[in-house]
């Protein structure tokens, strides 16, 4: 249960004064302004903010989908700021697990195959079946996405994300497309993965209630971090309500 204690591990990822400016036609939009934060081994962090707060931009930069306009990004002490396209692909391939709001499963592949898609290209993956067992879908692994409910699809997505044993699990509004009950079930799977595998997990959401399951909560507004708060009384997802 060591992981459950909060910020005791080493720094996995460091964000140092990162800014991001988008040029939209003739207008420049500052999506991030001098954002700094560290993420530690084994912790579960909730990144909280309304739409337009810059949380997705930060997640994209952390996940290697985007590069900062200014500032630095460190992964395991190695600077990622100057990484090229190939380095970023390798980074995503080996170190990052993604869970998306709309699951983004490959519709032509079964649950098991969707997970295998990742295990095929990872250096030390867990068995795809094992990953599905972890999300309690061992019995539905030969179903296609169209045969699964939304919650089930999202659990497959989680299994797919963790099967490579990523260093960092990034969940972008994982319950955004799900109903209340199913959403809680999915959050419980995320908790379970965080606790049982010790994967550093970052959940971004606009749903304040979800913050209660985090070790730390990062509040964002207008491209800036307004507060980083340590959650002293961590709740399990089943105790959450919104």
């Amino acid at each position: 249960m060591a992981y459950n204690q909060g910020s005791i591990g080493q720094t996995v990822l460091g964000v140092d004064k990162v800014s991001k400016v988008y040029t939209m036609g003739e207008v420049k939009v500052e999506a991030l302004r001098h954002v700094s934060a560290d993420f530690y081994e084994g912790e579960l962090v909730v990144l909280l903010g309304t739409s337009g707060s810059g949380k997705s931009t930060l997640l994209n930069i952390i996940g290697g989908l985007d590069v900062p306009s200014e500032g630095r990004l460190y992964f395991r002490g190695k600077e990622m700021t100057a990484a090229n396209e190939d380095d970023l692909t390798a980074y995503r391939r080996e170190s990052i697990g993604f869970v998306f709001q709309f699951y983004n499963l490959i519709s032509s592949l079964t649950a098991l195959e969707n997970v295998q898609l990742v295990t095929e290209i990872s250096p030390e993956p867990m068995a795809a079946e094992e990953a599905l067992k972890l999300v309690s879908l061992a019995d539905r692994m030969n179903h296609f996405p169209s045969q699964l409910s939304g919650g089930e699809q999202q659990r497959v997505a989680i299994a797919r994300a963790v099967a490579k044993r990523p260093e960092l699990l990034l969940c972008d509004e994982p319950t955004g497309a799900l109903d209340y009950k199913t959403g809680k079930l999915v959050l419980d799977v995320i908790r379970k993965v965080n606790e049982e595998l010790g994967t550093t997990t970052l959940v971004i959401t606009h749903n304040v209630s979800i913050a209660a399951m985090a070790d730390r909560v990062i509040h964002m507004r207008s491209g800036e971090i307004t507060e980083i708060e340590r959650n002293e009384r961590k709740l399990s997802p089943s105790e959450l309500s919104w």
Binding site: T89, N104, V118, S122
Partner: peptide
């Protein structure tokens, strides 16, 4: 496009 982008995000290379 969506599927392929998801795959890219998951770490598949452009060639893949």
């Amino acid at each position: 496009a969506r599927e392929l982008s998801s795959l890219r995000v998951l770490g598949l290379t452009r060639h893949e």
